[in-house]
C-alpha cells in the first residue's frame, strides 16, 4: 500500500534500552538514507525541535537523521517507579543513554548533533567516548553554564512549570525568527512533564567536569564543530568561543539573528549553517 503523499517522510518508532540498570522505552523519529546523524534535543523539550531537518528532502537524500526523545521527554516514557522519584539528569546517565542508543540502533560511525545540553554531551562524548562516532556538531554548546535563574522555579506545586519555563526560554529566542516557529518552540516547553526541565537543568547548570579538560579532545580523529546564535543569552557567543578556543582543531560558527534553539526557531537561517557543519564531519 502506498503512503498518502500528504504524509511527511518522518517515521516514528519505539525501542527499549537499558541504562544504569533500568529499562526505558524510547521514541525515535527518523528520515533519510546515507550517513547516520543522531540528533539530540535541548533540555525541557523533545525531538520535534529537529522536525525541519528531518523534513529536508535535499539533506535526507544524503543523510539518515535519527532523533530520539530522551527518557522522560516527548513520547518516551519515564521509567517504572517514576511516580515517587525526583528526576535529576546526570552527565553519566545522559552519556550512557546515547551510547546504548547507538548500540541498540546498530549505527556505524554516526555523526552526533546535539543542542544546548545535547551540545554539552557532544563535548563529553568527544572527550571521553569518541570511538563510535564520526564527529560532533555541538550546537549552543559550552564547557559550563551556571544558572542565571533558580531551577526550582520550574517545578512547584503552585504554578505551571511548563508555562514558566517557556516564558523564561523565550529570552533565548531571536525576535527575527518566524512567529509560528517561535511559538512551536515554546510549546514543547509548555508540554514538558512536571519537573523534567528542572531535572535537565540540574546537570546542565551544575556539572563543571569539562572545565580545563577540553584540550584532551582529539579532533584529528573526530572533528568538533561548535555553533552558536547571537541571540542566545544562555550559551552566549563568548561562551561558545571560550569553549572552542580550548579544543585544538575545533571550528566555530556564529549564527547571526538566531537564538538558543536554531533548528527549531528559524529553520531557514539555521539550514546553511547546519549544511556547513555536516561538511566539516568528513
Amino acid at each position: 500500500m502506498n503512503a498518502p503523499t500528504a504524509f511527511e517522510p518522518i517515521i516514528g518508532r519505539y525501542l527499549t534500552i537499558e541504562v544504569a540498570g533500568r529499562s526505558y522505552r524510547i521514541y525515535v523519529e527518523e528520515a533519510g538514507q546515507g550517513q547516520p546523524v543522531i540528533c539530540f534535543h535541548t533540555a525541557g523539550a523533545d525531538n520535534r525541535q529537529w522536525r525541519h531537518i528531518l523534513n529536508d528532502a535535499e539533506l535526507t537524500s544524503q543523510y539518515r537523521f535519527i532523533a530520539p526523545d530522551l527518557p522522560w521527554h516527548g513520547k518516551s516514557l519515564p521509567p517504572e517507579g517514576f511516580e515517587e522519584e525526583e528526576y535529576l539528569l546526570t552527565t553519566e546517565v545522559y552519556v550512557e543513554t546515547v551510547l546504548k542508543f547507538v548500540e541498540a540502533m546498530g549505527l556505524e560511525n554516526p555523526i552526533y548533533a546535539g543542542c544546548s545540553m545535547g551540545g554539552r554531551i557532544a563535548l563529553q562524548l568527544a572527550l571521553n567516548n569518541p570511538e563510535p562516532f564520526k564527529g560532533f556538531i555541538a550546537i549552543e554548546a559550552s564547557d559550563f553554564q551556571p544558572a542565571w535563574y533558580d531551577i526550582d522555579w520550574f517545578h512547584r506545586p503552585d504554578a505551571h512549570g511548563g508555562e514558566m519555563g517557556a516564558a523564561l526560554v523565550s529570552a533565548n529566542i531571536a525576535p527575527q525568527s518566524p512567529r509560528a516557529e517561535r511559538w512551536n518552540t515554546q510549546w514543547m516547553f509548555m508540554q514538558s512533564g512536571p519537573g523534567v526541565f528542572r531535572g535537565d537543568l540540574n546537570f546542565y547548570t551544575k556539572d563543571d567536569s569539562l572545565v580545563g579538560k577540553l584540550g584532551g579532545i582529539d579532533t584529528s580523529k573526530t572533528p568538533v564543530h561548535i555553533m552558536v546564535g547571537t541571540y542566545d543569552m544562555t550559551c552566549t557567543p563568548e561562551d561558545a568561543k571560550r569553549t572552542a578556543d580550548q579544543i585544538p582543531g575545533a571550528t566555530l560558527a556564529v549564527m547571526d539573528g538566531i537564538g538558543h534553539f536554531p533548528m527549531s526557531e528559524n529553520p531557514a537561517t539555521f539550514r546553511p549553517h547546519f549544511v556547513e557543519a555536516l561538511s566539516k564531519m568528513d
Binding site: W148, D150, W153, A159, E163, M164, A166, A167, L168, S170, A171, A174, P175, T230, Y231, M233
Partner: peptide, 29 residues
C-alpha cells in the same frame, strides 16, 4: 541581541530585577 528581553538587561548588567521574583516568574509571559 541582549536588548530583546528584560532578562537581557540583567545579563548585560544594564539593569536589575528585584523584589518577589517568583511573582514575576509566575506571570512571566
Amino acid at each position: 541581541a541582549f536588548y530583546h528581553d528584560i532578562f537581557g538587561f540583567v545579563k548585560t548588567g544594564r539593569g536589575r530585577i528585584d523584589g518577589d521574583i517568583l511573582a514575576l516568574v509566575k506571570n512571566l509571559r
